[in-house]
Amino acid sequence: MLSALEVVTTVAVGLMVGVEFSVAFVMNPIFNALPEDSNQQAHSHGGRMLGAMMPVWYIGSLVLVAVWAVAGWHHRGTGLVVTAGALLILSVVMSLLLLVPINNRNKTWTPENRPADWKQQMKRWDRFHYVRVAVIVGAFTLLVTALT
């Protein structure tokens, strides 16, 4: 049963990392290459769509890691799992304090009501997102290492 939990947790976190990596290094560069109105609308739509899905994914992944840490407490690699959990907690805190406030504004913007500094706000979101991606890649790497 523990092996199944380990695999499910690692796959869930890995998929989350893949989505966030794709946002940072594939989708946002595509959006940024679009004309200004389309660029902003794409970011706004992405913010609404992923803003609804990612909190469940982040919290669900964190819960799975916590269950793995408790269930496997006396097994080898638990320290790595606990450290991965700490990194996922950091990613949630970063999200709530740094990224969500910008995203909550962004998802309501239209070409008619966006603020003059919308591009600067999106660049700030991107910088925070790069750090968050690095944090969750670290967590994923620890989980994969704990499997060996």
Rank of each mutant, 00 (worst) to 15 (best):
M49W: 11
L50E: 03
L50I: 12
M54W: 08
Y58D: 03
I59A: 09
I59P: 01
G60C: 02
G60S: 03
L62T: 09
V63I: 07
V63C: 02
V63T: 04
V63Y: 05
L64W: 02
L64S: 02
V65P: 07
A69N: 04
V70K: 08
V70E: 09
A71T: 06
A71P: 04
W73Q: 05
H74G: 15
R76I: 10
R76S: 13
G77Q: 04
G77A: 02
G77P: 01
G77S: 09
G79E: 09
V81R: 00
V81S: 04
A84T: 01
G85I: 01
G85F: 03
G85C: 11
A86W: 02
I89Q: 11
L90G: 09
V93R: 10
V93I: 15
V93D: 12
V93Y: 13
M94E: 15
M94N: 15
M94D: 15
M94W: 15
S95F: 14
S95D: 14
S95M: 14
L96T: 15
L99D: 07
L99M: 09
V100K: 02
V100M: 04
P101C: 05
P101H: 03
I102Y: 00
I102K: 00
I102P: 00
N104E: 10
N104A: 08
N104L: 06
N104F: 03
N104K: 06
R105L: 12
R105V: 07
R105A: 11
T108E: 15
W109T: 11
T110R: 01
P111S: 10
P111T: 07
E112Y: 10
E112I: 12
E112T: 14
E112C: 10
N113G: 10
R114Q: 12
R114D: 06
A116Y: 02
W118N: 00
K119V: 13
Q121W: 04
K123M: 13
R124Y: 06
W125R: 00
W125M: 01
W125Y: 07
D126Q: 13
F128K: 02
H129K: 08
Y130T: 05
Y130P: 01
R132Y: 12
R132H: 12
R132K: 14
A134K: 13
V135Y: 15
I136P: 09
I136C: 11
V137A: 15
G138I: 01
A139N: 08
A139D: 09
F140H: 06
F140E: 12
L142A: 08
L143Y: 12
L143D: 13
L143E: 12
